[in-house]
Design a protein around this nucleic acid. Structure first.
Length: 421
DNA sequence: TCTGGGGTCCTATGCCGA
DNA sequence: TCTGTCGGCATAGGACCC
């Protein structure tokens, strides 16, 4: 048996913990660059504002209804997430952290009543962190997800829904009532195609023939069908596998034109990506850089280029990776365009313990380099990101992303500690 | 004026050699 | 020598998740 625990409207709820006056008010949290609404309070959802709706398109509506908008504050959300995950880890030895705001818990061998356990989880997380969660419990991940959806949408469940506790008629009934696009693994495209074949409700999908689904769609959807019927196909992964690729990209706060500004941005992103790379003790065998104009501005001349290069030797060294990235950038840069976004991808990741040496390559003393990177990481961990960096990352950062409504980082900066009165 | 970022997995496709 | 077929592999792109 598997439980899925998910924080309600996670980013919005994080903001509310530290500003209780937001309770009951319509609140959104915006994506990076204050672009789209990526988290919405129930009041905002009730206004019919969809996920990832561009903020500028809803400003008028926002004014009418007094919607309060926050820039995303990832330092806050990451810290709150850690607290929640820590609490949840007490309830099962098998925890798979699936995203910043949700995790699966393996319940096999846990003898107490699962719905009661779910209620205790809700109570504890709320009391210890201030965050509301819902719990779905089922024999497969897909059904646990489905139950979590029910727990969120139907107040009769009191925030916890356990599949096995529903009568067969009730199971049939709720599956009949819920649309397939609520199913984990069914997105916009699939939903459309399935609808054309008269597969509309979750019940329709669960009834479909798995073999036919496999040939007409994919093995992925076949697994979904089987999981909806209670047959587990997707294992709980309680150890996090190393990343196979690491990406760092950002849209700019304003369009940039000059190559040296793109260099600064790309150099900054390489440093971030390399930090992540070293944290998981990997080295990259290849690297890709991309730059692009704003595809939404259709009247502007468009340019988008993405080039990947293999490295002569896998590396986790910021200096070396930056050098390679700058070389790629220079090759793909074309003057005269208004660039809106750039990014760096580290590819072909492998353990940094087993790097194949290069016969003809003269590189800097690897030990010295490792120490240098280590030291930079330590300084930046202690004193904040970007405290020490390569000169190529620059100082002016006219391209920095917009964050016009950023809240304090209540839990991760001394200056921002909330004051109790 | 203003449209996110970071991942994974699967499939289709094309090439190569047997 | 030419053609067809097949499996293995790399790669690109699409779909999905949050």
């Amino acid at each position: 048996m598997i439980a899925l625990v998910d924080v309600n409207n996670f980013y919005v709820s994080c903001q509310r913990v530290f500003e209780p006056k937001l309770e009951g008010k319509p609140v959104v949290v915006l994506s990076n660059n204050d672009g789209c609404a990526v988290a919405r309070s129930n009041e905002v959802k009730a206004l019919g504002i969809g996920m990832a709706k561009p903020w500028y398109q809803m400003k008028e509506l926002a004014q009418q209804h007094g919607i309060i908008a926050y820039s995303s504050n990832y330092a806050l959300y990451a810290d709150m997430s850690n607290r929640v995950m820590n609490i949840l880890s007490r309830y099962s030895p098998h925890q798979e952290i699936y995203s910043i705001d949700e995790c699966f818990l393996g319940l096999d061998g846990i003898r107490r009543d699962h719905t009661e356990l779910g209620q205790e989880i809700r109570k504890t997380v709320l009391q210890w962190t201030g965050l509301p969660v819902c719990v779905g419990i089922g024999p497969t991940k897909t059904l646990a997800k489905f139950c979590n959806h029910l727990a969120k949408k139907r107040s009769q469940f009191g925030g916890v829904c356990e599949w096995a506790k529903l009568s067969p008629e009730m199971q049939q009934h709720v599956m009949q009532e819920v649309h397939i696009d609520e199913v984990w693994g069914v997105g916009r495209k699939l939903s459309l195609r399935l609808n054309q074949e008269d597969i509309i409700s979750v019940a329709d999908l669960a009834r479909a023939d798995p073999e036919t689904i496999r040939t007409r769609y994919s093995v992925v959807l076949q697994r979904t069908v089987l999981e909806l019927r209670g047959q587990p196909c997707i294992e709980l992964e309680d150890t996090t596998p190393d990343k196979q690729q690491i990406l760092c990209s950002r849209s700019f706060g304003q369009p940039i034109y000059a190559e040296h500004e793109l260099c600064e941005a790309v150099s900054t992103y390489v440093a971030r990506a390399a930090e992540k790379l070293r944290r998981q003790q990997s080295a990259a065998g290849g690297l890709a850089v991309f730059i692009r104009t704003n595809p939404f501005r259709e009247r502007d001349p468009q340019y988008s280029k993405h080039v990947m290069v293999p490295l002569s030797q896998p590396s986790d060294d910021t200096l070396q990776l930056t050098k390679a990235a700058m070389w790629v950038l220079h090759r793909i840069y074309r003057p005269g365009f208004a660039y809106a976004k750039a990014g760096v991808m580290l590819l072909e990741l492998q353990p940094n313990t087993a790097i194949q040496g290069h016969l003809f390559l003269q590189s800097a003393d690897p030990l010295k380099r490792a120490n240098l990177n280590d030291t930079m990481d330590q300084i930046n961990r202690q004193w904040g990101r970007g405290t020490i960096r390569l000169a190529s990352a620059g100082f002016n950062h006219g391209w920095k992303m917009k964050q016009n409504s950023l809240s304090p980082s209540w839990t991760t900066r001394w200056e921002d500690l909330p004051v109790a009165r």
